[in-house]
Each structure stands twice: as C-alpha cells, then as structure tokens.
Amino acid sequence: MVFTEAKRYFVERRIMERMAATSTLRFSDYFAHLRDETRGEVEQLINAFTVNETYFYREDHQLECLSKDLLRERASVKSPGDTIRIWSAPCSTGEEPYSIAIWLLENWAQVDAYNIEIVGSDIDTRVLEAAADGVFGKRALMRLSPELIGRYFHALDDERWQILDDLRLSVRYSRVNLIESRETRIEGKFDVIFCRNVLIYFDDESRRVAAENLYDSLLPGGYICLGHTESMSRISPLFDVCRFSDAIVYRRPQEKKP
C-alpha cells in the first residue's frame, strides 16, 4: 500500500485509533509496542488500514464472463470430475467468493460436473473471520433478488442474514499478502483469479511484484479478472489481454510446446 501526503489524515486517524486501543499515550510508546513482535500489533495496524467496502454480485458482468466464457474454456482442457480452482484475493468479508459460488450454482449448467474449489484470501484477519461467519446486512445483499436471498441465506433477525452452512463451509479462507511470494505459492495454482480493486492501492513496484505472484498462481491458460478501472497492461507484460463480450480479462499464456 502506498500513502501520499494527501492520505496523511487517513494514516493519522488510524494510528490514533490503535494508540487508543492499546492505551499508549505517546507515539514513541506506540511505536515500541508496534515493534514488539510478540504483541501482534502489526497485524492489528494492517487490519486498520484495509478498505473492505463490497457487496454481493458486484461487477456481475465479470461473473457473466466467468460462467459464459472463462469456465467453458477451462473446462475444455479438463475432464468431468476434475477440480476447477477459483481464487478470490482479496476476498474481504466474503461477498465475492460467496457471489461466485451462488452465481455458478445459478448460471453454470456444468457446475455439478466438476469439483469447484473456491478459496478466499485477504491480508486482514478480521475480515477473514467475518467471511467465515458469513453474516451479512441489507447493504451487502442489495443486488440479490429476494428469491436468491431466500434460497441461499437464512435470516438471523430483521437486519442480518447468514449464508447457508453448505455454502459457507464450501469456501476455504486463508491469510495471504499478495506481494509475498512465499504466501501466494502456498495456495497452489488456480484456473481463475478474481483480484479486484486492490492493486490500485499499491505503488508501482508492489503492483509489479503482485502481478508476478498472481501470474505464478495461475495455471497456464488461467484467467485473472481485475477491477473495472484497472488494467494489467499498465502493470505487467506477462499476460495476454482477452476481450470477451462481457468483460476484458487477462490470461496466463499457454506454455509453448518444445
């Protein structure tokens, strides 16, 4: 993440919040607290800086592209019963990985022919806990029809709905920093990666490193979807640009046969 002078207020506010939470009155004391690795404060500070605004079926033209084009192509190099791996990184509080699961159940006729594995990863451990809980408010569900909500959620009260256990337990969550290759590598290779609206927060060097890690996390011929204002062409020449009817996505090229 990169914070320019224009973000000074944003940074100051979060540090003040953490100083209050840790009962440290002076910045020098908080800094010492932060550097004491046994206290886990670095993780708490990182959590305070992440932006977790999202909702179900956000940018659903990419989900349309997933079921119409990307999975058709990935399935064409697999056999029925094979695993198709989809990575939502960052996954925030789970709206994206659960959206992918619901979308495929509703819109991909071959969903039962393959073993679909969905992994959600984020650097923020608080959101990962929330994602695993799978409890959402009205705003997160605003783009889902009442029928879909009725089919995949149960109401906890007037304001909160929890995703059904079958779906909730089908998504695996993990903490990953996209610019740490030793962390991304652990997750293995994916057929499709959704990496939306996070690279915009990185500086150029971190963006390049993240793009290389994402490239390594894709199977040859695998696809990556970025946010609608992001362009991989500006970050890395490693990927092919693929223009489908609903979205532009990027592909790790197939390995050349010797």
């Binding site: 033209h61 609608h228 204002t229 223009r243 489908f244 009817s245 609903d246 979205a247 532009i248």
Partner: peptide, 10 residues
C-alpha cells in the same frame, strides 16, 4: 476515455 474502460468491450 478512461471511464470507457468500465464498459463492455464492444
């Protein structure tokens, strides 16, 4: 021009 990036490719 940059906003056009949000549109379907066609």
């Amino acid at each position: 021009c940059e906003l056009v990036r949000t549109q379907p490719p066609i």
